[in-house]
């Protein structure tokens, strides 16, 4: 059972990581986008940090609030995408099953939301290139009866591999797609920051 405390810890840990890396994320975005990914996400996570936790009785309602907060404060593409991820993730938490199965299914729901929203597929040099493999590995681990900790650790590793694979890719979605072949050689900022989210989950949710 994912507790409110654990969900809050996840959000706080992710906010800390984003604060630390905002400048780097923005710099990655400067090379292939519009140089706002780090600062946008940092603005959103700062607002998430300010959510009064005691007003939310369970993890799902807190994560939904975080999603709506991101929608209204990030501003760029990450707003609807990260917002959708948290809203769908939270909406899937009442499914039956052990913790690993529930979290893997919730991650799947979040991924489906992002794909619907952004219409990207793997190989487009987007957040999906990291989140897609992470969800697949999480589902596989959970179905083998792995613990939540092992499931999320494996998912984070898969996300990192997917993130690194975006380096040679040519972007086909978003602002970076305007660059065509010149987008190759730079790690995708969205894949980078979503990997941080999965890594953060591995540190806090289990």
């Amino acid at each position: 059972m994912l507790t409110t405390e654990k969900a809050a810890a996840w959000l706080d840990d992710y906010a800390r990581v984003i604060h630390e890396n905002a400048a780097w994320l923005t710099d990655l975005d400067r090379q292939i986008g519009d140089a706002d990914h780090g600062s946008n996400l940092e603005r959103g996570m700062t607002a998430v940090e300010a959510i009064p936790r005691e007003e939310y009785p369970d993890a799902a309602s807190l994560l939904k609030k975080a999603g709506m907060t991101l929608v209204s404060t990030v501003g760029g593409a990450a707003g609807p995408l990260w917002g959708t991820f948290f809203l769908r993730f939270a909406g899937a938490l009442d499914e039956p099953g052990d913790d690993a199965t529930v979290v893997a299914a919730a991650m799947r729901a979040g991924l489906v939301g992002i794909v619907q929203r952004g219409k990207a597929t793997e190989g487009d040099k987007t957040v999906v290139d990291a989140l897609g493999p992470a969800v697949r590995v999480a589902e596989q681990k959970a179905s083998q009866g792995a613990s939540l900790a092992d499931t999320l650790t494996a998912a984070a590793e898969a996300a990192a591999v997917g993130r690194d694979a975006t380096i040679p890719m040519v972007a086909r979605k978003g602002r970076a797609s305007y660059l065509g072949d010149r987008s190759a050689g730079v790690q995708d900022p969205g894949a980078t920051s979503i990997t941080m989210l999965v890594e953060s989950a591995a540190r806090t949710l289990a």
Binding site: V71, T73, G75, G76, G79, P80
Partner: peptide, 8 residues
Amino acid sequence: TYGTDAAA
């Protein structure tokens, strides 16, 4: 601040 907001 530049940005769009689905709720708005």
